[in-house]
């Protein structure tokens, strides 16, 4: 599968696209260029250092202050998890003496349980998460494009319906999904209960939803003039969409992809119905088994597993940041 966020491909598309945004491009770059140079160019840094502290503080310093405060706020509760993961007999919040014992045996043990194949879960979660994220971005972007660019009867009702469908309390969702998937599985065993592909299909059922809105709002900010210019050049609607518009909305695609990945990565209820063989299960399903039985909870191993499971999410975000923040901005409004 091609990765929509592939850098090389992105550069190519950017290439192709450039003439079309030329009108706005230079203005954009002009606004950016000096800053880029300033931070990227080491020789200019001494000038910055000589700035007075109050000015530095007013400009960026306070941001660091907030950053540090938030760092503590966001990470502190998780230190308990980290501490428990490093203590072979650890409890989650039995004590405020964190890191009394530092021992990596839980992490080692995590990979040595034949009945609980952590490595396989990890890989499964990654694959299912990435495929679902790519599918969600694709389906959502198609729909958002239609809602944003095309005018048709039922457009607003359709948008509203997307919003409302997701609000229905899915009290019996689990029962319904089981009935549905065991029915589908009788016709296509490849996507029935017990298969990862079936699980991905169920997840894709949620592709149109709030994420479509996020993309829809973003699409609306891309000037229609760009589409029209391309149309005049003889480009088909598919070429405009895949070749031009998708590149311009890269930041929001990255955000939606990340949200969908995280959502899938931590989804438990549907995955536990769908995946029955330990080798095919995901992290969320597998890990929970360590603590689901009240009398044999193993918080230490569970915590170690949860700490490692957070890494892909953070790595993906780190990787996507350049698309989220640095994506080609449209440059101007309509």
């Amino acid at each position: 599968m091609s990765n929509p966020f592939n850098t090389e491909q992105g550069a190519q598309v950017g290439d192709r696209l450039n003439p079309l945004v030329a009108g706005s491009g230079p203005t954009d770059r002009a606004a950016r260029a000096p800053r880029t140079v300033q931070t990227a160019d080491g020789r200019l840094l001494p000038t910055r250092r000589r700035r007075s502290f109050p000015r530095w503080f007013a400009d960026t310093g306070w941001r660091h202050l907030i950053g540090v405060v938030m760092l503590v706020f966001a990470a502190f509760p998780l230190l308990y998890v980290l501490s428990a993961s490093l203590n072979p007999t650890g409890t989650l919040v039995g004590s405020n003496q964190l890191f009394r014992v530092v021992d990596f045996s839980n992490y080692v043990e995590l990979f040595q349980r034949p009945q609980q194949p952590y490595a396989a879960w990890f890989l499964n979660s990654l694959v299912i998460g990435l495929v679902t994220a790519a599918g969600t971005v694709f389906l959502g972007a198609l729909a958002a494009y239609a809602f944003s660019r095309l005018r048709f009867t039922g457009r607003r009702v359709g948008l509203l319906t997307l919003l409302l469908v997701q609000m229905f309390p899915q009290l019996l969702g689990v029962v319904a999904i089981f009935l549905l998937m065991s029915g589908i599985g009788e016709i296509f065993p490849q996507v029935g209960i017990g298969t990862q592909s079936g699980l991905i299909l169920v997840y894709l059922g949620g592709a149109l939803g709030v994420n479509t809105y996020l993309m829809y709002g973003f699409f609306n900010t891309i000037p229609v003039s760009i589409d029209e210019a391309a149309k005049l050049d003889g480009a088909s609607h598919a070429q405009i969409f895949f070749g031009i518009v998708l590149r311009l909305v890269a930041p929001i695609l990255a955000v939606v992809g990340l949200l969908s990945f995280i959502g899938t990565f931590s989804e438990f209820v549907i995955a536990s119905i769908m995946l029955t063989d330990p080798q095919t299960q995901t992290l969320a399903v597998g890990l929970y088994q360590f603590v689901s039985q009240e009398t044999s909870r193993n918080w230490a191993i569970f915590s170690a597993g949860a700490v490692l499971a957070a890494i892909p999410v953070m790595a993906l975000f780190l990787y996507l940041q350049k698309y989220i923040i640095g994506g080609l901005t449209a440059g101007s409004v309509k």
Binding site: Q115, F178, T276, D277, Q281, Y288, S292
Partner: peptide, 15 residues
């Protein structure tokens, strides 16, 4: 089939 122990009862009743 490996199931989460806590979920077995309710899933069994519905399935």
């Amino acid at each position: 089939v490996t199931k989460d122990f806590g979920a077995i009862r309710d899933e069994f009743i519905t399935q």
